[in-house]
Amino acid sequence: MENNNLELLKKNLKYLGFGNSLSAALEAKISQRLEQFKIGVSSEFDAFPKDGNQGKDKVNYELSFSKTPSSNFYFLDQLRVTLNDRIQNVFPFGKGNDVTAKEAYNLLRGASIHKKAILNRQVDNAVLAPSEVGQVKEVSGERIESIWIKLDFEKLNEQGNFYYKKFYPDHGFHLETELRKYPIKELDSQQEKEALISNIRRGNAANATLENGQSVVIEADPETKKIRFYDTAFKELFVSPIPTQEIDR
């Protein structure tokens, strides 16, 4: 049973983007049969400095595990993430809206990500729109919805973590529809289009190419319902939309 638990946790950590780097530490902690334990790890990502100054972002991860009272099974409870020793947030696990290591970093740097999450829209004082029929599923009075989220750096909850800003389908931002308004070469290939959309939905600054051959970096900004373009030096660009009559052909 202990081995099954260990292998499951290893698989979960790999899915979350930690690879096998924590396997030895995880095995050592579980062998001690502690009620709770933590494991730390650091990583670096290429920064997305919108003033043009390139660099690295340092991210510290602290993973907290606990054992259920009725069994010897351990679970990942939460992930504490600190960006450049100046901004921090705790992401809980097991509520259906788990974020990966890279997604947590992207949220802390201010990006938006697209997730299937268990939510209660009454909490947000929102009502389901007819356009959302078929996109949601009831789960014990709550709903699984595909939404865009970003951290609200101006609001903290009782635990000292940032609230989420949530953008439902009826907010009016649909990524592929917005991308189709611009001359992006990757949209001409189904495989490249899917890879680009998946990359942007994870909050990544995605590389793409315009029809004129220019290399660009793309980010989604669901809050303002915009696609943002940058050059390879991360200077924001204005990209002219395709004329409406050409989109509709």
Rank of each mutant, 00 (worst) to 15 (best):
G141P: 02
I87M: 06
A233G: 10
A195I: 09
R249S: 14
K166A: 12
F65H: 02
F153I: 04
T224N: 11
L13M: 08
S131I: 11
E176C: 05
V239T: 05
D85K: 10
R33C: 08
E176Q: 15
R121D: 02
S71W: 07
T82P: 07
E236L: 01
T100D: 06
R201T: 12
D248T: 10
E246N: 06
R109Y: 04
A208Q: 13
T68C: 06
F234W: 09
S31R: 11
N20R: 06
N4K: 10
Q78L: 07
D51M: 07
E145D: 12
G160V: 09
Q78C: 13
T244W: 07
N84E: 09
D221C: 07
N120H: 08
A101D: 06
L151F: 13
I242D: 04
S31T: 07
Y74K: 00
L9C: 01
D248P: 03
L79M: 14
L151K: 08
N97F: 15
F45V: 03
D46L: 12
G160T: 00
N53F: 07
D152H: 04
I197R: 00
Y230T: 05
K225A: 03
D221W: 11
S215I: 03
R202H: 09
K95F: 12
E192I: 10
E176R: 15
G213N: 05
N20E: 13
Q135Y: 01
E236K: 15
F48T: 10
S146R: 06
G141Q: 14
K56W: 01
A206T: 05
N84C: 04
I147L: 05
G110A: 11
Q36C: 03
A117T: 08
I242W: 05
I200T: 04
L22K: 02
N212F: 05
S71T: 15
F75M: 13
G96F: 01
R109S: 01
V127K: 10
V41Q: 15
K11S: 12
Y163S: 03
K150L: 03
S71P: 06
S112M: 06
L196C: 07
K116C: 01
V59M: 05
V123Y: 11
T100P: 06
G94T: 08
L210Q: 00
E194S: 10
K185A: 07
K14Y: 06
V90M: 10
H171A: 01
V133T: 12
G94N: 05
A117E: 09
D98H: 02
N3T: 14
P183L: 13
N212H: 01
L107C: 07
Q122D: 15
S42Q: 14
K38Q: 09
V41T: 15
D188Y: 12
I200H: 05
F234N: 14
I184T: 03
H114M: 07
T82A: 08
I227D: 08
A28H: 08
N212L: 00
I39S: 00
F45Y: 11
A126I: 11
L156Y: 13
Q32E: 13
S112D: 09
W148Q: 01
M1E: 04
F45I: 02
V127W: 09
N207P: 04
G19Q: 02
Q190F: 12
R143W: 15
M1G: 06
D170P: 00
E219T: 12
Y182T: 14
Q214W: 07
A28M: 14
Q122H: 02
V99P: 02
K116Y: 12
P183Q: 03
E145M: 04
L179V: 00
G110R: 09
R143N: 12
